[in-house]
């Protein structure tokens, strides 16, 4: 079966997946965050990827 895909399928993961909370190391509280966080990720879009290559034989 081929699904028509101008929509990709719905995400099938359940709500809050992986939400089991671990015991953190002593003192490892959550990070303090700023009220306003600029997102700069898109300012540079490197034309490359994380590519795992076989080594040449």
């Amino acid at each position: 079966m081929t699904t028509s895909n101008w929509v990709v399928r719905q995400q099938l993961f359940p709500p809050a997946v992986g939400a089991r909370l671990p015991r953190l190391p002593p003192g490892a509280g959550m990070p303090e965050r700023r009220s306003v966080v600029p997102i700069e990720w898109f300012r540079r879009m490197p034309n490359g990827g994380t590519v795992y290559l076989r080594s040449p034989r």
């Binding site: 709500p15 997946v17 992986g18 089991r20 909370l21 671990p22 015991r23």
Partner: peptide, 16 residues
């Protein structure tokens, strides 16, 4: 190392 999925969820569960 503690479980990566559980620590990710501390930052934000995947659906969030």
């Amino acid at each position: 190392s503690p479980s990566a999925p559980a620590l990710h969820a501390r930052l934000a569960p995947a659906d969030v």
